[in-house]
């Protein structure tokens, strides 16, 4: 007789956030703006967290604080790197730069277009920085430009001349070409056409299945319903003037 023992395997943790707090001190107004306060959550490999809340509740601010474009004021964000645990709230700037190159991606609607760099080169760059050969990186870049519906004639052109929608597709292809351990998604579907949105959701599904952990803000959460594991609701912190 066979006895089947099923051992529930819990995916490995990627991020544990404890008491994370962000305030903006605006010196010229002599005011402190409270963005969010004492946030706690845990994220594991292949999990997807949707951030919810009204405008101004601090959803994007939380993503930017984890990416360290904003400096947290308190708390911890213990991130499990391939080389051990590091607190994103207090890690050295150069360590954050290393993580951004290797493990943590940030996807926004806005392309930081540089003059005279072709779309395919913009998309291939993360692969090149990670050590992929130029020719190979270009093949992969073109594949993703195609998948997001950027017309072939545009691949060798400079994105600084593209329409907003086309720039966004280039940006998404670039942001998603290299599988990261943690992806921060700041309204990536806003103003995307249907085909590009489908390509994006398809790519996110693939990445999730391969173990990429994600935290996202979506204007239309119905786009990603099938992906969501946890929802975190943020509330605007109310505070009287000091």
């Amino acid at each position: 007789m066979n006895i089947e023992v099923s051992i529930p395997t819990t995916p490995a943790p990627v991020l544990r956030v404890e008491g994370l707090t962000k305030q903006f001190k605006m010196h010229h107004l002599k005011r402190t703006l409270f963005a969010f306060d004492n946030i706690d959550f845990e994220l594991r490999e292949g999990e997807f967290i949707l951030l919810k809340g009204e405008n101004g509740a601090g959803k994007s601010t939380l993503l930017r604080t984890l990416y360290r474009s904003y400096l947290p004021r308190g708390g911890h964000a213990y991130y499990h790197t391939r080389e051990g645990v590091i607190d994103l709230a207090s890690a050295a700037d150069v360590d954050i730069a290393v993580l951004r190159r290797r493990e943590i991606g940030f996807v926004t609607q806005f392309l930081n277009a540089r003059p005279r760099v072709a779309a395919e080169e913009v998309v291939a760059e993360p692969l090149r920085l990670a050590g992929t050969y130029h020719a190979e990186a270009l093949v992969e870049a073109r594949r993703w430009l195609g998948a997001f519906g950027v017309k072939k004639q545009l691949w060798a052109a400079y994105p600084s001349t593209f329409s907003g929608g086309e720039q966004q597709k280039v940006n998404l292809a670039r942001a998603l070409i290299l599988p990261q351990r943690l992806l921060l998604l700041d309204e990536p579907t806003a103003s995307l056409d249907r085909d590009a949105r489908n390509a994006l959701v398809e790519r996110l599904t693939q990445l999730k299945a391969s173990g990429v952990a994600m935290i996202g803000v979506f204007h239309h959460p119905e786009d990603v319903t099938g992906l969501i594991d946890q929802e975190i609701a943020l509330k605007a912190v109310k505070i009287e003037d000091q």
Binding site: G19, T21, Q23, T32, F34, D37, N38, L71, P72, R73, G74, G75, T81, E83, G84, I86, D87, A89, S90, A91, A92, D93, V94, D95, A97, V98, L99, V237, I239
Partner: peptide, 21 residues
């Protein structure tokens, strides 16, 4: 709802590099 973290008025001190080898 927990109390506002008003004590966190100062910046977090950064650690020395660990990943940058």
């Amino acid at each position: 709802m927990t109390a506002l973290n008003l004590a966190a008025a100062t910046q977090i001190t950064h650690q020395p590099p660990r990943l940058m080898l």
